[in-house]
Computed example of a mutant assay.
Amino acid sequence: MKILVVGGAGTVGRAIVENLSAAGHTVLSVGRSSGEHRVDITSDASVRALFEQVGRVDAIVSATGHLFFGPLSQMSAEQFDIGLQDKLLGQVRLALIGQHYLNEGGSITLTSGIVGEEPIAQGVNATTVNAALEGFVRAAATELPGRRINVVSPTVLTESWDVFASYFPGFESVPAARVALAYRRSVEGVQTGRVYRVG
């Protein structure tokens, strides 16, 4: 398969690229400032240009997106909009434009996160965005005949635990290599409209 991995230079993205490449797929790594191709997922023009460059693909995987973390009592609409424009609309944009470059039988896999169902302190933006992404995937699956769409929802990564442990008291971390397995299941499997929870 020819697979596009957006966010391929990130911790999860690198694990996905490694896993899918080892399985014999042709993997194109894409990033905002690194990778074989560049894209700004907040821009329609940039996403269209990416797909014009790479052409048709068998799978689109998104492991990218920025969020805003901070206390609700001090949060502005502008700060809240960070997650809406980047991780939410950015990934939705990849799906909306990417569907037209997806081969028959192909798949789209997006990324949400555990806080979509397990809110944490200062994570209102993250919970909102992740829950919305999961809703988008469940609904979009009903309107993609001959193609599939799923979302992977990982818990906090072991590789990032030192940075984020204080946000996730009592949570268990998971290594990126194990998270990557869920993306492979989405790409190579038959399910659609699924939320693959890893944690």
Rank of each mutant, 00 (worst) to 15 (best):
residue 27 V to L: 02
residue 134 E to T: 08
residue 79 Q to D: 14
residue 131 A to T: 10
residue 165 A to D: 14
residue 171 F to C: 02
residue 156 V to E: 09
residue 107 S to K: 10
residue 21 S to M: 01
residue 29 S to C: 11
residue 102 L to R: 11
residue 80 F to A: 15
residue 88 L to A: 10
residue 96 L to R: 15
residue 96 L to D: 13
residue 160 S to R: 02
residue 136 F to S: 07
residue 158 T to F: 02
residue 160 S to V: 01
residue 131 A to Y: 02
residue 14 R to D: 02
residue 43 S to T: 00
residue 106 G to A: 13
residue 98 G to T: 10
residue 172 E to P: 00
residue 142 T to Y: 06
residue 38 R to A: 03
residue 177 A to R: 15
residue 120 I to M: 10
residue 81 D to Y: 09
residue 102 L to Q: 09
residue 163 V to Q: 12
residue 123 G to I: 06
residue 90 G to D: 12
residue 180 A to Q: 03
residue 161 W to M: 12
residue 44 D to A: 07
residue 158 T to S: 12
residue 118 E to D: 13
residue 180 A to M: 04
residue 101 Y to N: 04
residue 187 V to Y: 02
residue 44 D to N: 11
residue 63 A to R: 13
residue 156 V to Q: 09
residue 27 V to D: 01
residue 82 I to C: 06
residue 18 E to R: 14
residue 1 M to D: 07
residue 63 A to I: 12
residue 147 R to P: 01
residue 89 L to W: 15
residue 6 V to F: 02
residue 144 L to M: 13
residue 33 S to I: 01
residue 48 R to V: 07
residue 193 G to P: 03
residue 39 V to H: 05
residue 184 R to V: 00
residue 8 G to K: 07
residue 61 V to G: 09
residue 127 T to P: 02
residue 80 F to S: 13
residue 98 G to S: 09
residue 56 R to S: 15
residue 108 I to L: 15
residue 194 R to C: 08
residue 114 I to N: 05
residue 117 E to L: 04
residue 159 E to A: 02
residue 69 F to W: 15
residue 4 L to S: 02
residue 150 N to L: 00
residue 142 T to Q: 13
residue 45 A to M: 03
residue 44 D to G: 00
residue 185 R to I: 02
residue 124 V to D: 05
residue 18 E to L: 07
residue 186 S to G: 03
residue 81 D to V: 00
residue 32 R to Q: 10
residue 178 R to E: 15
residue 122 Q to W: 13
residue 29 S to Y: 07
residue 145 P to I: 00
residue 44 D to S: 08
residue 83 G to D: 05
residue 133 L to M: 09
residue 149 I to R: 04
residue 163 V to E: 14
residue 119 P to E: 08
residue 12 V to P: 07
residue 75 M to R: 04
residue 75 M to C: 07
residue 67 L to V: 15
residue 95 A to V: 11
residue 3 I to T: 03
residue 114 I to W: 05
residue 101 Y to H: 15
residue 86 D to Y: 10
residue 107 S to Q: 12
residue 98 G to K: 10
residue 8 G to L: 05
residue 68 F to Q: 14
residue 118 E to G: 03
residue 43 S to Y: 00
residue 14 R to V: 01
residue 146 G to T: 06
residue 5 V to D: 02
residue 113 G to H: 09
residue 9 A to R: 10
residue 151 V to K: 08
residue 103 N to L: 11
residue 44 D to T: 13
residue 165 A to H: 15
residue 44 D to Y: 06
residue 31 G to I: 07
residue 109 T to K: 05
residue 11 T to Y: 00
residue 2 K to L: 03
residue 164 F to L: 13
residue 107 S to I: 08
residue 50 L to S: 08
residue 139 A to Y: 09
residue 99 Q to V: 10
residue 198 V to R: 03
residue 26 T to K: 10
residue 57 V to K: 06
residue 32 R to S: 09
residue 169 P to F: 03
residue 62 S to N: 14
residue 139 A to V: 14
residue 19 N to D: 14
residue 26 T to I: 05
residue 137 V to K: 11
residue 86 D to H: 14
residue 13 G to A: 05
residue 6 V to G: 01
residue 157 L to G: 00
residue 71 P to G: 12
residue 174 V to A: 08
residue 46 S to H: 02
residue 84 L to Q: 12
residue 138 R to Y: 08
residue 76 S to Y: 05
